[in-house]
Amino acid sequence: MSIPRRLGILATVGIAGLVVPVVGLIVRTSWGRVLSDIGDASSAVRVSLVVSVIAVTLAVLTGVPIGWVLARGRFRGRTVLRAAVLLPIVLPPVVSGVALLAALGRNGSFGRWLDGAFSIGLPFTTAGAVVAAAFVAIPFVALVAEAGFRGVDAELEGVAATLGAGPWRRFRRIVLPQAAPALAAGIVLGWARAVGEFGATITFAGNLPGRTQTLPLAIFFELEQDPAAAFSLSFVLVVISLGMLLAARRAWMR
């Protein structure tokens, strides 16, 4: 099918706007030092890996059930609940950080209780960085999982029930296999989001190398100290993100 010329022109402008910065980054990257720059940033790489993997694990454990509730739940206020759950996707990350501080900070309503009851303080800890990353990753997983679950005919579960399958077996044997590609895509997107998290992390968890300084934070500070290293690390993140997008797309389209 042919594309109307006006749409084509606007799309071209938009694509250029999206691609040019990335091309600029690639051009500025000094290839010879990418590996050594990653080595120098190994603590940030490690923090990013630990934080994002734990965050995405939390996101799967909670986001998938949330997606299920949103897809199949029949109750009042579901629309409002969905909006509330998906809010972090559209919220400016720094606002997420402020909100986390307000709730889980040392003086936060919930954080004060955590501190008093368990002596748990989240700000300035790796756990805090995990919370910040999970806060933005969970909605992604939930959103994609909901779409995946919606794609599974609910009548099939009814048939499975008449064949003696209880709720958990129906979920595991009928729903999960059919929603698996969507869930895989959701996990990848949620992970990408967790790796890339910056605003909420620096606001809520602070910036300490080896503990809360993730790759994006390291890049931010490296830009002054050693801009070339910032370009190297940014390039690495671009490659990782692109890879994850392609993987998600493959999983989604399968």
Partner: peptide
């Protein structure tokens, strides 16, 4: 609930489990 009734149900349009073979559909229950 349905899973505790001794009932066989053939819905309109068959509604076979799309991710299983015919054999696995029959073996499911």
């Amino acid at each position: 609930p349905a899973e505790r009734r001794s009932v066989g149900y053939v819905p309109q349009g068959s509604l076979l489990f799309p991710h299983m073979t015919a054999l696995d559909n029959v073996g499911f229950g």
